[in-house]
Structure formats: structure tokens, C-alpha cells
């Protein structure tokens, strides 16, 4: 049976069916991400002073990924416009560019950004032991300048076995710049260019530690919401890429030869989804990377 109204408009709605379909789907997507964003707001407002980390993500890489997504939104519009002008060759190249952008975005996220976090260590110090580690935390200095309290020492964990082995009584951490030099005014606010962990090693006794973990979802409400929202967003990017690959493969050229307008409409619908994914990222980027 022929699928009805793929190209022509349905008389009662005035639209071809897929167009309404995608908008209804996007409406449900708005609610899905809306729920997660309201959870983010709630967790963030509820976070006690010093418990919402700042400047832990790589801003230049995030900016680059934002630019890549925006460019892919441009190329998908160009791909659709090429089909409307019946220039399949141009369409094919613009689609390839879109797919490449999507793949680069995912690769950066999964092969670079996330693993770097999994490799980073943080230890929240018990309230009564904060004074003992004042040389790494600089809380007196922070209080003087009106900065939030510093409860966590972060860096690169040297003795990884310490995480599991109860016989090892302390963590050896190559400190992040803030903990290596906590009273340096240059460390008051996050930097654009991320700075690697220093050579300076601190020994943190386990009994002084409230809670220590790598930067995994369980690290904090911040990382839990970061991984949930960017993970779901990444799945959307993956879905978009798969759909675009299908529209780019020779199967779709056959459809183009039979009914070019139908393929153009498919690309339009896929593009609408892609722009929505871009739109979500426009909010994710400042909320997690910058603020």
C-alpha cells in the first residue's frame, strides 16, 4: 500500500503527514529535555555552598563542538535546498559534510571529553579536617575574597590502587593548579584554557576524606546531570547521524529518481530533528561549561 500524503498536503491539516509527525515528536522531545533541565535547576539551587563545581570542563573543546553542530545545521539546510533545486551531487556532498560533523562531535565527546573526566580524581574533605589541608584549599583566602568554600581537592590520582585497597591509607594526588596554589588570585575564577595537573603531589589521608571518586556521575549532582543530559543528547546526535547516513546511501538515490520531492521532504524532517538537537546543545553548553 502506498503511504499517503508524503508529498501532497492532506486536505484537513493542510500539511504533508511527516511534517506534523515530526513536530508532534519534537513537542514530546521538548518535554523530555524540559524535565531534565528542570531537574538541573533544582539540583543546582539545592547544592550547598561549594558543592556545585565550576571550570571542570574543557571550554575550548566545548566551544569547538558547539561550532561543529552549528555548521552541520547549516549544511543540512543546504542539502535540503540542493534537493529542492534537484542538484543531487551537491546534496550528496552537503549530506556527507553533515554526517562528518555529527561523527566528529560524537568522537570528541566519547573519545576525548568523557574519558578525560573518568581519569580525573576528586576527594571531598571532612569538615573537621579542612584546616589540615588549608595549604591546598586556601579557605581563609577564599572567605576573605567572598569566594565559595573549597571542600574538594582534585587532580591526578597517582596510586590508583588506593581506591579499592583498604590497606592503603592515603591518596597521592598530583594537584590541579587551584589546589597547588590556592591563594593565587589568578585561580579565583575558571580559565578559558584548561591547565593540566601540576607536578606538586599531595598526600591525603583516607580518614580525612568524606568522599572520594573519579569524575563519574556519582561524583556530584553536577556530574550526574552533566553525564545524563550530554549522554541523552549524544544519543540524539547518533540517531540523527544514522538517519542521515540512510538518506545519503544509494538506496535514497533510487527514491530520488522516482520521487525527488519525497526525498526532499524526508531530508527536511530529518533536518528539523537535527536543528532541535542543535538547539538543545545551545542551552547545554553554557549551563555546564560556562556558568
Amino acid at each position: 500500500m502506498e503511504i499517503p500524503y508524503t508529498v501532497s498536503n492532506r486536505p484537513d491539516t493542510g500539511l504533508w503527514n511527516a511534517k506534523i509527525g515530526i513536530w508532534l515528536f519534537l513537542a514530546s522531545e521538548v518535554m523530555l529535555f524540559g524535565g531534565l533541565f528542570s531537574a538541573y535547576i533544582f539540583l543546582r539551587i539545592d547544592a550547598p555552598p561549594g558543592m556545585w563545581p565550576h571550570g571542570l570542563l574543557n571550554v575550548p573543546v566545548g566551544t569547538m563542538n558547539t561550532a561543529i553542530l552549528i555548521m552541520s545545521s547549516v549544511t543540512v539546510v543546504l542539502a535540503w535546498a540542493s534537493l529542492k533545486m534537484r542538484r543531487y551531487r551537491a546534496y550528496w556532498w552537503y549530506m556527507l559534510a553533515t554526517i562528518t560533523c555529527g561523527v566528529i562531535f560524537l568522537t570528541v565527546k566519547l573519545a576525548y571529553e568523557w574519558p578525560q573526566k573518568f581519569d580525573h580524581f576528586g576527594a571531598y574533605i571532612k569538615t573537621e579536617a579542612l584546616g589540615k589541608y588549608e595549604q591546598y584549599l586556601g579557605n581563609e583566602y577564599a572567605a576573605e575574597k567572598g569566594l565559595p568554600p573549597r571542600l574538594e581537592i582534585t587532580g591526578h590520582l597517582h596510586n590508583r590502587a588506593a581506591q579499592k585497597d583498604p590497606n592503603i591509607k592515603e591518596y597521592e594526588v598530583a594537584l590541579d593548579p587551584l589546589n597547588a596554589d590556592p591563594t593565587n588570585p589568578a585561580m579565583d575564577r575558571p580559565h578559558f584554557w584548561p591547565r593540566p595537573a601540576t607536578e606538586k603531589i599531595a598526600t591525603i589521608e583516607k580518614e580525612d576524606v568524606q568522599y572520594a571518586t573519579m569524575f563519574l556521575p556519582r561524583h556530584s549532582a553536577y556530574f550526574a546531570s552533566y553525564f545524563t543530559i550530554t549522554g541523552l543528547h549524544g544519543l540524539h546526535v547518533l540517531g540523527g547521524v544514522l538517519v542521515f547516513i540512510y538518506m545519503w546511501l544509494p538506496v535514497s538515490k533510487r527514491l530520488y529518481q522516482q520521487n525527488p520531492e519525497h526525498l526532499a521532504n524526508r531530508v527536511e524532517v530529518g533536518g528539523l530533528f537535527w536543528h532541535f538537537v542543535d538547539l538543545v546543545w545551545i542551552f547545554v553548553f553554557p549551563l555546564f561549561y560556562l556558568l
Binding site: L15, S73, G271, H275
Partner: peptide, 20 residues
Amino acid sequence: LVAAIFMHLAAEKRLIYRIL
């Protein structure tokens, strides 16, 4: 901007505005 231009909501059928 993305919604108005890329998703061409600047000129769309009334039913879609209603959904939104």
C-alpha cells in the same frame, strides 16, 4: 534564530504553531 530560520518557523502553517 535556529527555530525561526533553520526550522523555518518564521513562515509555517497554523497547525504547527498550534502544536507549539
